[in-house]
């Protein structure tokens, strides 16, 4: 799907740029990068810090940009730093720069984040037409089962926010089977997929939990790889898929009532 030549075919090792690892490191997500480091032959990881200009904006050799979950104040900081490159980022995405964005890092690429309790609006990068509402006294936690092409995706969500598409033509990354989609009203669409840009609210060690998806991603990059501990990853994936497909498994956690509810 990428259209560009794979990293390995180019005779080079794959380059992954990890944006802001010092703040985007919640919920074990740094393992998404570590898992690729263990799995891909000669993977070069560039760790770009807050005061550095992202490499994908100065060089066209970055195969994958990864950005993960962070705190609310870190989100403001990340937006502040990336705003200086707003147009360049949009251009890079148009040109087919590959991104994998997880958890609330997704919100940075929308129009704005509105905190309904503090009544504060943070203008985001405005790259995609969607917006986010945040209520810190309400935390949504849900399991997730969805489709990506012909692959089944399993994962988690746990967030203070819900996002809303402002343009119906925006394509989701995953199609929800069970669990919460992009927001309460939206029943199917989850995340964003535009050209090679991929973003999802699913958080945590997504690549470890979804070995088939990780394989698809690395194949589409053209990387030379063998998934680390593939047997154990597949055993855990298959067991989780069976569990999440079981109609008796509750899918949401209500903090207020401290109990589990069944959805979908």
């Amino acid at each position: 799907m990428s259209g560009d030549q794979g990293a390995y075919q180019r005779g080079k090792s794959m380059i992954l740029e990890f944006l802001y690892p010092e703040i985007c490191n919640l919920y074990g997500e740094a393992f998404n990068v570590r898992y690729l480091e263990e799995s891909v032959q000669d993977l070069k990881v560039i760790r770009t810090h807050l005061n550095d200009k992202p490499r994908f904006l100065v060089s066209d050799d970055v195969d994958l940009v990864y950005m993960g979950m962070m705190t609310e104040s870190s989100q403001v900081l990340a937006i502040e730093k990336l705003k200086a490159y707003q147009k360049e980022i949009a251009t890079a995405i148009e040109k087919g720069q590959r991104f994998m964005v997880t958890g609330n890092a997704l919100e940075i690429f929308g129009d704005h984040i509105y905190d309904v309790e503090d009544k504060e609006k943070t203008e985001a990068l405005k790259i995609f037409p969607f917006h986010t509402k945040r209520a810190k006294m309400k935390r949504y936690s849900s399991l997730f089962l969805g489709d990506f092409n012909d692959l089944k995706i399993v994962g988690y969500k746990s967030q203070f926010t819900k996002s809303y598409y402002d343009d119906d033509t925006l394509e989701p990354l995953f199609k929800t089977k069970r669990g919460t989609a992009f927001n309460d009203e939206e029943k199917v669409k989850e995340g964003i997929r535009y050209k090679n840009f991929m973003a999802t609210y699913l958080l945590g060690p997504l690549f470890i939990m979804n070995p088939y998806f990780t394989k698809w991603l690395l194949e589409s990059i053209g990387a030379k790889f063998k998934l680390a501990n593939e047997d154990a990853a597949l055993d855990a994936y298959k067991a989780r898929l069976k569990e999440y497909s079981d109609p008796n498994t509750g899918f949401g956690y209500s903090l207020k009532k401290s109990k589990v509810y069944h959805s979908n």
Binding site: E29, A30, F31, Y156, S158, L203, G204, P205, V260
Partner: peptide
């Protein structure tokens, strides 16, 4: 206790 009704989020294992 989680296992009775839903499924624990295992992100913490990776922290």
């Amino acid at each position: 206790r989680d296992a009775k009704e839903w499924s624990e989020l295992v992100c913490w294992l990776y922290e």
